[in-house]
Amino acid sequence: MKILEKVDKNDVQVRSVLFGRTMQKRLQKQIEKVQKDTSFDTLIAELRLKSNE
């Protein structure tokens, strides 16, 4: 990250890398959010019921 901060942010490759890193940070947060999301619990309870039928 240190090197990138020193270079021209208008550079195409730098912009691409920044995009990649930003999306990765977002993805990590999204995965955690999905894993903690309690609205999934209802779905999973229903799923368990169905699988036991």
Partner: peptide, 10 residues
């Protein structure tokens, strides 16, 4: 996207 600084490809 290749990130050579951390040796990753996105």
């Amino acid at each position: 996207i290749k990130d050579f600084e951390v040796e990753l490809t996105y």
